[in-house]
Design a protein around this nucleic acid. Structure first.
Lengths: 162, 162
DNA sequence: GACTATTCGTTGAGGTTTCAACTATTGCCA
DNA sequence: TGGCAATAGTTGAAACCTCAACGAATAGTC
C-alpha cells in the first residue's frame, strides 16, 4: 500500500534533488578554491564568530551547526591544527570543552565571506523573485518542523524489509 | 563592495540550509537502516532501472546522476562487489563500459523503494500544500538554470582572496 | 597514415563523515 | 554516600568523496 509520488511530485522531487546538488557543489568548489575551506568548516567558523567571546561549548556548537559530536570533534581537530580555533577547558563542567575562534580564524573567515556571500547571491537569490524567497523560507520551515517532529531514531518505515 | 544578504535573505538562507540538511540526513538514515544503501547508490540503481535493458554507459549514468566520473567509478566497484550491477564491454566504443542492473540489484531496489518513497512523502510532501509543491519546483528549476549557465569552472568570485 | 587533442573510465592518495566503542564526568534517587 | 543512568567529548576503523594523474581508445587534422 505504498503511496507513490504523483507525476507532479516526482518532477518537483527530482528538480529539488538536482538543484540542491548543483548549488551545494558550486558553493563547495567556490569556497574550497577561494579560501581552502570546506563549506562545513566555514559554517563552524561562522557560528563561533557570532557567539559571545567567539566561544562555544562543543555541545552547543554541534547543535547550532547540525553536526554529530563525532564529526565536530574531528573537524575541530583539523581547525585547531590549522590555527583557526583553540580548545579551552570548560570552567563549569569538567567534561566540557570550549572552542574559541582565534584571530587567525576570524581573519580567514573575513577573507572567505565576501566571495561566499556573492556566490550565494548570484546562484540562489538573483534568479529568485522576492516572493519566491519568502516561499522558499516558508517551505523550508515547514520541512524543518516536520522532520523535527518525526525524529530519525524512530524510523520512518520499519516494514520496508518485509 | 560586497552585496551582503538582507535579513530576509539571511533567514531564508539559513532555513534552507537547515531544511536540506535535516531532510538529507533523515532520508540517508532511513535508507541506510532499511536497506543498507546510501542514498547516492540508491540513485544509481534508480537510473539504471529506468534505462532500456537496465543498462547505461558509465558516461551517461554519471551525467544522469550528477556524479563525477571518479565517484561513479568507485561506487560502481562497490555495487558490483555487492552483486547489484555488472559491468559489460561496450560494443561500439572500446573505451566504454556498460553498467547493467542485475536481478539482485533490481530486487534490492524494489525492496528499498516503498520505504524511501514513504519517507519522502512523509517528510517533504505531506507538510507542503499543492501550491508549495509547484513553488518548490519552480524555485528549483530557476536555480538549476542559473547554476548551469554559470559553470563552476569559471569561478564565482576570483577577487575574494584580495 | 602520423600527430595531437579529446574523451572514457580507472586508480591511489588524502581528506571528510559515519559508526561503534570508550573514558570521564555529572545528575538523579534512594 | 553509593549506584546507575545520562551526557560530554574523543578515538579508530571503515566507508565515501575529491583531486590529480594515468592508460587506452577515439576524433580531427594535415
Amino acid at each position: 500500500m505504498t503511496r507513490w509520488l504523483t507525476d507532479e511530485e516526482q518532477r518537483a522531487w527530482r528538480a529539488y534533488l538536482h538543484a540542491t546538488h548543483l548549488l551545494a557543489e558550486a558553493l563547495e568548489r567556490q569556497l574550497q578554491r577561494d579560501s581552502g575551506l570546506p563549506h562545513a568548516y566555514y559554517e563552524i567558523l561562522v557560528r563561533l564568530s557570532e557567539a559571545p567571546d567567539r566561544m562555544l561549548r562543543m555541545n552547543e556548537l554541534a547543535d547550532a551547526s547540525q553536526y554529530s559530536r563525532s564529526r565536530l570533534s574531528h573537524a575541530a581537530s583539523r581547525l585547531e591544527a590549522a590555527g583557526w580555533i583553540e580548545r579551552l577547558e570548560c570552567p563549569t563542567d569538567r567534561r566540557g570543552q570550549l572552542a574559541r575562534l582565534t584571530d587567525d580564524g576570524f581573519a580567514a573567515l573575513e577573507a572567505a565571506a565576501p566571495g561566499h556571500v556573492e556566490a550565494v547571491r548570484t546562484l540562489l537569490f538573483d534568479p529568485l523573485s522576492p516572493e519566491q524567497v519568502s516561499q522558499l523560507r516558508a517551505i523550508s520551515e515547514a520541512v524543518i518542523a516536520r522532520v523535527q517532529q518525526w525524529p530519525v531514531e524512530r524510523g520512518v518505515s520499519p516494514t520496508a524489509a518485509g
